[in-house]
Design a protein around this nucleic acid. Structure first.
Lengths: 206, 206
DNA sequence: TGTACATCAGTGAACGCGCGTTCACTGATGTAC
DNA sequence: TGTACATCAGTGAACGCGCGTTCACTGATGTAC
């Protein structure tokens, strides 16, 4: 008696990973509000009690998904940075473009990443992922103004991040450019980015 | 037979208003996640079915609370603006301070205000409240750079708002300065604000 | 190579929960005459 | 000034829902001997 190939094995293989993938997709489709463990299980074709073997709670799964998000965000920024003209200023702008593009393409995930509770933020894997994103941003700023005093660098790190994050957040929440075409919106974003980089150069310049 | 003064009247008097007030407080205490109609009713000392006479749904109540929030935000910005040195640049910074202070003092409400769905944003009362906030901000920018071309003004409106909103959002979400004292954090915020206003002046100056 | 057995990763039933909303109702209010 | 009556704003019971989590279980896997 040969089992057909389509028979589902009793063991999933890598349910943990499957739940993360399914959860991420669910998040994008339904938002945080529509995110449930049971639906994640359904999408992974598994009973709703199965996830308990891999995640202690729904928050643990969300935290893992957010950590992946920060990893991807960092990757997106790096990829865009590599595509830039190679100057420090060009790279800073490009990373900003990568940041905004990632947020726009994964808005629910992005929202999740920036609405985590304090206890979630303390999870080592997540903290590490966030640390990488921060570090990448800091490096890009420091490359633009290598000779500036530390406090100025810190100010510019805050400032640059705030303007990029603020702009795309306001766009995602419908506060900016809800009547604009995607093209017009992108141009407004680029304007913010170039204003930002000019400020960094001028403020941190020797 | 005289009824004691403490006897609850059958009719509430102004349940609609009471629900908004209770809801706002609940939002601050429990966040959006812990916000329920039934708890609002409980806090207004009324049966859980009573709110239906005043709000068609829980979202309608949330929308109203958000609209109040935008009103208060505008008031807070104006109040801080009046306390400034009277120069256009000083007023712009002061309004930014008011914005950040409001967000910090009402973080859950602030989060609600910036996580509204498209259909909620279309509610006339809310749209009007948001419009006032936008207008106030725009005026402050235009006063700083009255002679700049319209596109530059628009760019600076976007830019200034993005940097202020981005900074305080990142702080509230624990991404910036989670190890800082409130005093240190405020100084980082002020640094962002002064960098912002310098940029506006320089970019829009004749 | 075979077998016993511990461990792991699933299942499906059940629990308890609080929610939003609906419904028939009733007490209170205010207005027309 | 009094009365009938429509309307309004509450009540409390009920409905149906899907959720997270727990539990005893069982099938599958892998390892020691």
């Amino acid at each position: 008696m040969v089992k057909p190939m389509t028979a589902k094995p009793y063991h999933h293989g890598d349910l943990r990973e499957a739940l993360i993938v399914a959860g991420r997709k669910l998040m994008e489709e339904r938002g945080l509000r529509g995110f449930t463990l049971r639906e994640c299980a359904r999408r992974a074709s598994v009973s709703h009690a199965a996830p308990a073997h891999h995640f202690a709670s729904i928050d643990a799964l969300l935290t893992e998904i957010a950590a992946r998000g920060f990893h991807e965000l960092t990757q997106a920024m790096m990829a865009e940075g590599r595509r830039s003209d190679g100057t420090p200023a060009g790279r800073l702008v490009a990373q900003g473009v990568g940041y905004m593009a990632f947020a726009a393409a994964n808005s629910a995930l992005f929202r999740l990443m920036f609405s985590l509770e304090a206890d979630q933020l303390e999870t080592p894997a997540l903290a590490a992922a966030i640390g990488s994103t921060h570090a990448l941003h800091r490096e890009a700023i420091e490359a633009v103004i290598p000779d500036a005093p530390a406090e100025v660098k810190q100010r510019m790190v805050d400032f640059a991040w705030a303007s990029v994050h603020g702009f795309i957040t306001l766009v995602l929440e419908g506060q900016i450019g809800d009547k604009d075409s995607p093209r017009a919106l992108k141009s407004r974003g680029l304007a913010v980015l170039s204003t930002m980089v000019e400020t960094v150069v001028r403020t941190g310049g020797s």
